[in-house]
Design a protein around this nucleic acid. Structure first.
Lengths: 129, 129
DNA sequence: GCGTTACGACTACACTCGTAATCTGAATTG
DNA sequence: CAATTCAGATTACGAGTGTAGTCGTAACGC
């Protein structure tokens, strides 16, 4: 079959990820709108954001839809999937692929407070159901 | 005070990290020993490992100690600290700095199986004590 | 209609990374 | 002592990244 849909695409860099976050928060957006939303925090020029958008389009992580003389940009991948793959990478790299040691580490590093732990217990109970 | 000790140093790249793992497992090691331990899995030449070692020394993540005509290499940072900072980076970037959502994500993505969850509960109980 | 904008496309450029090869000097071997 | 060898230092080099600037063209304001 003539492919055309899907396409995992290469990895998304950190700067590109910031752009993705803007698009996951709201889309479609124009380049200027994306810029308005990310330049603020990152101190980027519009040109920089445009470059990042093109690279994301090249990586097929973002799709464009023409809107008159300009483009509307939308993510083609779900944030959940991205988060999942990034989390997995970390777990693979640092914890031998096992997620439990990561949680153990977070507990030991006191990255989790009482509320977090209570929340986790709740999630586990929920999951068990 | 004339500094000179410590120095967090720049970020460690992924290839460099593989070298760090070898040194965390055993140190001090010579360049050849490190190479023997990592080249296997990565398919790197000794030259590559030497380059990575120099870069790690430049970043002050690894220290050298002369041993005759050669050097013995040892990590200057603890694996725990590295794991901690990498985990934090992920949590900051993807979960707004809160670790609980990461665990929630792992549970939902079914990255955790029953054993993992049991283990986490054990850790939590342990932590509570 | 014509100058001014607004946009995407193309170009730029220094720096990091992955992956080595080569150079240089010292040590070891005959 | 000369030849070989081994180790670190230096150099290489293409791909990817961060961070823009410039070009060309189509639309919009007057």
């Amino acid at each position: 079959m003539t492919d055309q849909p899907e396409d995992p695409g290469e990895r998304i860099s950190e700067a590109e990820h910031a752009v993705m976050e803007a698009l996951w928060e709201a889309s479609p957006l124009t380049a200027t709108e994306v810029s308005d939303r990310v330049s603020e925090a990152r101190g980027w020029s519009l040109a920089t954001v445009k470059t990042l958008l093109s690279r994301l389009v090249a990586k097929r992580a973002v799709a464009t839809e023409p809107d008159g003389r300009r483009f509307l940009y939308s993510p083609t991948i779900e944030r959940t999937d991205y988060v999942d793959s990034e989390s997995r990478r970390l777990v693979d790299r640092l914890f031998g692929g096992r997620a439990a040691p990561l949680v153990a580490h977070l507990v030991e590093a006191e990255a989790l407070n009482e509320d977090d732990i209570a929340e986790i217990e709740r999630l586990i109970r929920e999951f068990r159901k």
